[in-house]
Amino acid sequence: MRAMLEQLITLTRRGPVALARIVDTTGAGPREPGAAMVVTAAGEVFGSLSGGCVESTVVESARQVLATGHAVSDRFGYADGDGFEVGLTCGGEIEVFVERVDDDRLVPLEALRQQIDADRPVALATTLDSVVEWKLLRPGDSEPWRGVDRDARALFAAGRSGVVGAEECETEQTRRPRVFVQTFGIPARMILAGANDFVRALARTGRQLGYRVTVVDARETFATTARFPAAHEVIVDWPHRYFAAERAAGRIDDRTVVCVLTHDTKFDVPAIAAALNMDEIAFVGALGSRRTHAERTERLRAAGVTEGRLARLKSPLGLDLNARTPDETAISIAAQILAERGGSSARPLDRTDGPIHH
């Protein structure tokens, strides 16, 4: 839903829409909780939930929701590829909640967007009833809500999205509805040192993967927002000095990815050395040939980088895809980052066994 938030606000200003979200998953699934699809009264469809497995049925539910105003919940399980039933071919199960969103939701939606744009963690809690209630959760909030506030805030604090609460069997007890808590945490950072075509391509790819992308280079002529429109910010500074300042400000954590793509010893050696000496950084990579890597490694040793630190360096950077162009190279680098982040082998799936989704 994060990627569709701006579009959702724009469409809602024009009239009621149906918002469908995956709220629960079991086993292997095509998308994570929070994946969203929007259907307008004119039948326009934006976004997807399963890559085509269940969308047609969800569109029909959306039409019903738009007509009645009452939300519905659909659950989809495994469907044999040779059968006629609608379902998932991946073997998992998903629950899709479809609700009508009118202009009275614009205030919380815009508040949600403001929190996200300001890089402040926030969560949207949604009651999974025919008549839906929303509540925005922010750090430090303590107001009781529907008997599930503690559970919802625990999920929010953990940075996870999921369902809390349940309807009680005893009628005399306070009703605890099922509530979907969709958490919008601070995005992980991708810091790219350099100001060339490879940086521009990787900035685009990194943003598509949900990273907050920063481009940093000391050359004012090259480090401009016009040259790197996909980056969230472009900084004119020496990369190693910028890394130190961001660390001191607490803006580097164990999800941060650093890629040094400068091809210039006076920039890349101090930048790589600084990044390798920060345990908080999850991934440190450097672009270059094997010869460049060997020469650079000797310079890093001379700069005092220990063997243990050097072992963290991903260089030459990227997977073996025979990538040549900047865009191809960006894909090879992003694939390596995804594999490292997920503890995956990066081998072709047709040469592996077991679950596709870890």
Rank of each mutant, 00 (worst) to 15 (best):
V72N: 01
L88V: 05
E167L: 13
G15D: 09
R291H: 12
V257H: 06
A323W: 06
R341V: 03
M1Q: 05
A231F: 06
A274Q: 14
V96T: 07
G34S: 09
G304L: 12
G83T: 14
A230K: 01
E55L: 09
A193F: 07
V164I: 04
V58R: 09
R296D: 01
V17D: 10
C169Y: 09
R200D: 10
A226V: 07
A42G: 10
D149N: 06
E93M: 05
F97N: 08
R138T: 14
G140C: 07
K135F: 01
T205S: 12
A28V: 00
L66M: 08
A20Q: 02
D74Y: 00
C169P: 09
S61D: 11
V107T: 14
I337F: 05
L155G: 12
I186L: 10
G87M: 05
G81W: 02
P121N: 11
V17C: 15
A302M: 10
E233T: 12
G43N: 06
S344V: 03
T25Y: 06
T262W: 03
T183H: 14
I235P: 01
G34V: 08
T292L: 02
F198D: 12
W134M: 11
V101D: 03
P348S: 07
D82T: 13
T68A: 02
T127S: 07
I331L: 15
E85F: 06
V45L: 10
D129T: 11
T89I: 13
A3V: 04
Y242H: 15
I94T: 00
S48L: 11
L109D: 00
V38M: 08
F228K: 02
Q64N: 07
E143W: 00
A323D: 05
G29K: 00
R153P: 01
V23C: 15
P121K: 09
I9Y: 04
H293C: 10
A20K: 01
E95P: 03
S56R: 09
G210V: 03
N322W: 09
E95T: 15
S73I: 15
G87V: 06
H70N: 10
G147L: 15
A294N: 12
T306S: 15
G52I: 09
R241Y: 04
G318E: 08
D80L: 05
T40E: 03
R207N: 10
S48T: 14
A335Q: 10
I281V: 14
L137V: 08
T306R: 15
A18L: 08
N196G: 10
G147E: 14
K266P: 00
L66R: 04
R175S: 06
V101Y: 05
P144H: 00
A79M: 03
R189S: 14
R178N: 04
G185T: 11
L300H: 07
V23D: 03
T183N: 08
Q114N: 08
A42C: 02
H70E: 14
